[in-house]
């Protein structure tokens, strides 16, 4: 039996620096500090949303967890065991616990494989089926679970619509019965009416299976807020705030979260008429040379000189509401 508050994943001070090399000798001249000290936890059965503007390091966090990248430093505890520096042969047996769903259903599926093969392949890779019949039945069930007609199994990806392709990606992700699914912008390439179909499907899958956890990555705060139990907001390689969707909307504390919220218009002209915007100055700085101290200080409306010096750490300001800002009491 799993405890209700059992942690499935704990990420501690994760850093991922990509070297920038120059010349024939590939001399390292600088680093892209894509992820620069990220800490969070996901409980069994919980959905953590990870939101932030493009380039802030969301995808890199996801790829470090499944070890598509080997992190520069930090820990990734899966069921209590640090997998951040496991050698690849040991990592293999962990992989089936994770699944990735990507943004682009067009490029993430092998065009030469039939839909059935795409969905069922992980079952074979991880030796999870006993017989051909067993395989066939499992793949059919997977098709049904994502709302695809099993008669489509012999078709090829290009014969499917964007929404159907994303369903295939989800069926494939579910095939190994993972305990953590990392969704990286799963609906960003889809039209709004199709987006809702996929969001509801992901939600049904979560409710239908005890203990499935999600890391739900998106640049779209409305989508993340809708889908998540808790939301982590990222800016330039760091998490600036983590809290429940409700508190995030009603009581955002970090100046970046406030600006992000105010930048997103609500489809209601009566609300928009009176809603004030906090317009941030300039663009997001480069992660090659991020500002010292709090990375937001160059754009922050309430920055003080100390913000240039100190890297603010995430701290609990009450009820699990974590924020990284020295200006927040």
């Amino acid at each position: 039996m799993s405890m209700p508050d059992e942690l499935i994943l704990e990420v501690k001070d994760l850093k991922m620096y990509f070297p920038i090399t120059r010349g024939l000798l590939k001399k390292k001249v600088a680093y892209v500090k894509a992820v620069d000290g990220v800490t969070f936890k996901i409980k069994r059965g919980e959905t953590l949303g990870l939101v932030g503007e493009s380039g802030c390091g969301k995808t890199t966090v996801g790829r470090c967890i499944v070890r598509l990248y080997k992190p520069t430093s930090g820990q990734i505890l899966f069921n209590g065991k640090d997998i951040s520096s496991l050698p690849e042969n040991k990592m293999r047996s962990y992989r089936k616990n994770f699944a990735l769903i990507f943004q682009d259903p067009y490029s993430s599926l092998d065009p030469r494989q039939s839909a059935g093969n795409i969905v069922g392949e992980p079952l074979k890779i991880h030796n999870l089926v006993k017989s051909k019949k067993d395989y066939q039945e499992r793949v059919e069930k997977l098709f049904q679970s994502v709302g695809l007609d099993p008669s489509l199994m012999s078709r090829y990806p290009h014969e499917f619509s964007g929404g159907q392709r994303q369903r295939m990606g989800i069926a494939r992700a579910l095939s190994c019965e993972p305990s953590l699914i990392i969704c990286d912008e799963p609906v960003s390439a889809l039209d709004v009416s199709i987006q809702a179909q996929i969001i509801n499907l992901l939600q049904d899958l979560k409710e239908g299976s005890l203990g499935l956890s999600y890391l739900f990555i998106s640049h779209d705060l409305s989508v993340v807020k809708h889908f998540s139990d808790r939301v982590a907001v990222m800016y330039l390689g760091r998490i600036v705030e983590i809290t429940t969707p409700k508190k995030l909307y009603n009581n955002p504390l970090h100046p970046y979260t406030k600006a992000l919220l105010s930048a997103i218009p609500v489809p209601d002209p009566d609300i928009e008429e009176t809603r004030k915007r906090i317009i941030m100055k300039g663009d997001v700085p480069s992660p090659v040379n991020p500002p010292s101290g709090c990375a937001l200080h160059t754009r922050c409306p309430i920055a003080i000189p100390e913000c240039k010096e100190l890297v603010p750490l995430l701290r609990d300001v009450g009820g699990g509401h974590e924020v990284a800002c020295i200006r927040v009491k």
């Binding site: 199709i194 809702a196 179909q197 807020k225 809708h226 889908f227 919220l261 489809p267 209601d268």
Partner: peptide, 25 residues
């Protein structure tokens, strides 16, 4: 009406379910 109901909004109540437009354009 379908478009308006299918988009998540920042001011949605917790637990609200989206109403997708079924099918495709």
């Amino acid at each position: 009406i379908g478009l308006l109901k299918s988009v998540p909004r920042l001011d949605d109540q917790e637990g609200k379910r989206l109403v997708p437009i079924e099918g495709m354009p």
